[in-house]
Structures are given as C-alpha cells and as structure tokens.
Design a protein around this nucleic acid. Structure first.
Length: 373
DNA sequence: GTAGGGTTAG
C-alpha cells in the first residue's frame, strides 16, 4: 500500500499527467445508480455539473480499483476545484460502500495532504471499514487525519476506533499509537480520556485499563477526568479494592477528587454492599469541602436503607431536603421499599402519599446531569 | 458531545 501511495504522490507531483485523464469517462456511464448521488449534492447545497457526476459514477462502476483508476479519480477531483471537497467525499463514500477501503484511504490521505478535508461522516465509514477488515494501520491513519482536520471527534468515531480491537489481544501497536496521539494533543488529556472511555464502553475493560497504565507509566497527559473514568470502570467491574487504590493514587498524582470522583466511589461501594464505607467516604468528602448532590444522597439513602440502617437512611433524606436538594422518585421508592422490609408499613404509606402529592416537583434528569460547560 | 442513576433484583 505504501508503495502505491508513493506512486500516486509521484504521479500527482507531475501535474502534466492530470491531462491524461479528462472527464471523457462519462461516455462509459450507464444511468443505473446515478440517482443516489444527486440528492446528496442537493442536500448539501452544492450541485456540481452533471458531467462530473457521470464521471464519478462511471469511473467506479464495476471497475477494479487499480492505481490507474485511483489516478483517474484524483484527476476528476482535481479538475473540479470548486467542488473537490464534495466530489472527494462522494468518491470515498462510494469506495467504502463498495469495500475498497484501502483505495478510499489513499484518496483520503492524498486529499488530506492537500488540505482538502472531506466530510466527517466518510471518516467514520473508513473507520468502520478498516475496523472490519482488521486494517489497523489504516485505522490509525484515518483517526489521526480526522483529528488533525476537525480537532474534535464524535463519540461514534471513538467507538468505531475502539471496536477495531475487540478481536485482537495484540496491544503493542495500540499503545504505540496512544503515545503518538498524546504528542499530537499535548498537553490536553481529552482525546486520551475519550479513547479510554470508548474502550470501556465497548466492553474492553482490560484494554481501557492497559491504556491508562501506559499513559501513567509513560507520563503522558492525564487529568481528573482520566481518574474519574478509571474509577468508574473499576467500580462497574466490581473491583472495589482496585478502585479505592486508584483513588488513593490520585493524591500522589496531585489530582484533587471532585464530587464525581466521590459519587463514583460511593455508588460503586453501594453496589457491593459496603454501606459503612459509603458513609466513611461521605464524611471524607465533607471534610474536604466537597458539597454532596442528589446522586450522593441517592446512593447513601439506598445503601443505608438496604442494609437495615433505616434511621440513617431517613436522616440522610431529611438532611438532603434541608440542603435544598429536591428528592427524586428513586429516593422515595428506595425509602418505601426499605421501610416495608423492616415492617414500618405505616411510615411507608406516609412517604407514598408524600411522593404522590409531589410528583410534579420531584427531581428529574436535568437535576443531576452534569452542568453544561 | 470528556466523567457520575433511570423500574440499578424490588
């Protein structure tokens, strides 16, 4: 592939060769399949001339994508300077859908080198294609180009990237790439954080943690969010001890835990039934001047109530309301169930009535979603 | 749109 890429670069540098590929290929076009291109152009408001469109279609129809065909495509794009972005996007789209991932990647790279950045969605097509075909080098290339072109990737792109590694245990290349990307994004940790998050979200917990270890070992960028993501990963995996160990290591790294760190910790400890530890960390967060919120109290009310400490559960519920934090249906549901469990049916009924009479002013999703920033 | 719930077993 590298050789043909080099070949293309050479042929591109010899601009005289462009004239060898005029748009005459349109003569060979048949009308089938033309219809899919037109709506695309009208939808983005750049209808190019129909001859270019015929050329687009004809040059790919049933042809093997040889270097000659690639050169022909590039010449077509070059000859359409006012719409080369759109035309390039159409070509790469079509090549991806036809399974010619490698050719699509080459076109993307050549246009990228010419500062022609195609529509982001074709990068995703390429990420998926490269992922399915296990073309890791291409995957890295597309990911990097996407980042350089747009500075920001969608969550979908990160997920496509991560999914490429589901079937492989070889992480040497991946870790090398992580270091590579880190140099590109230094000093921000954002891209690395999102990579870790995508690996976790696609069920690759071990690889997510491997990347984290690598980042720490190599002293790459790392911040509060990195730790919060890792705490969550360990908590969800039921690895409470490892989670607490990482929490302690935040101090050594000079990173101060915030309300999300503590909530992640408390909620994960709740899941494994460690109610006393929930309260201990709740106390610690108070000493450190971090204000608890609805999620903190929800985890504590449930944790204490479920382990039979119903008095503490009720006290926390009152304390929360005194602080002006509106309860949610989940707090009531939790209280009512746990009260019934210890035989306090009357009090449970009282809370049921209180809940029903205040349904309209209970906390909803907007009351605990992270603040917009 | 970089991180922490959504009938989390009820």
């Amino acid at each position: 592939m590298l050789r043909s890429l080099a070949g293309l670069a050479v042929s591109l540098s010899q601009s005289r060769r462009y004239t060898v590929f005029p748009n005459q290929v349109c003569i060979k076009s048949n009308s089938v399949g033309f219809s899919w291109i037109w709506p695309f152009f009208t939808s983005i408001g750049h209808p190019p001339n129909s001859f270019q469109l015929f050329a687009t279609h004809a040059s790919l129809d049933g042809k093997e994508v040889t270097d000659d065909v690639l050169n022909e495509i590039l010449a077509n794009i070059e000859n359409a300077p006012r719409s080369s972005l759109e035309l390039g996007t159409v070509y790469v789209d079509k090549l991806c859908r036809a399974g010619s991932i490698s050719a699509a990647g080459q076109i993307l790279q050549i246009l990228h080198d010419k500062k022609i950045f195609l529509r982001p969605y074709v990068y995703n097509l390429l990420l998926v294609g490269a992922s399915e075909r296990n073309e890791i080098d291409l995957l890295f290339q597309v990911f990097k180009n996407l980042f350089i072109s747009y500075k920001q990737l969608s969550e979908t792109s990160y997920l496509h990237f991560a999914k490429a590694f589901v079937k492989t245990d070889d992480c040497v290349q991946l870790l090398r790439f992580v270091k590579d990307v880190s140099q590109l994004t230094f000093p921000s940790a954002s891209v690395l954080n999102r990579i870790i998050f995508a690996f976790a979200k696609s069920g690759q917990t071990d690889k997510a943690l491997l990347i984290f270890d690598h980042i720490r070992r190599e002293k790459l960028s790392l911040d509060l969010i990195t730790y919060n993501v890792v705490l969550d990963i360990l908590g969800r995996a039921g690895r409470a001890d490892d989670m607490l160990h990482e929490f302690e290591s935040m101090k050594e790294a000079g990173i101060i835990p915030d309300v999300i760190s503590y909530n992640t910790l408390i909620n994960s400890l709740r899941k494994v039934g460690k109610s006393e530890m929930c309260l201990a960390y709740f106390s610690q967060m108070g000493k450190n001047g971090i204000q608890p919120d609805l999620l903190t109290y929800s985890a504590l009310i449930e944790s204490t109530g479920r382990t039979g400490n119903i008095e503490e559960s009720l006290r926390l519920f009152r304390e929360m309301k005194l602080k002006g934090i509106r309860p949610s249906v989940y707090n009531y549901r939790s209280l009512i169930n746990n009260l019934k469990k210890v035989g306090k049916d009357e009090l449970a009924t009282t809370f049921l009535e209180e809940m029903n009479s205040s349904l309209t002013c209970l906390a909803g999703p907007k009351d605990f979603k992270r603040k917009s920033r």
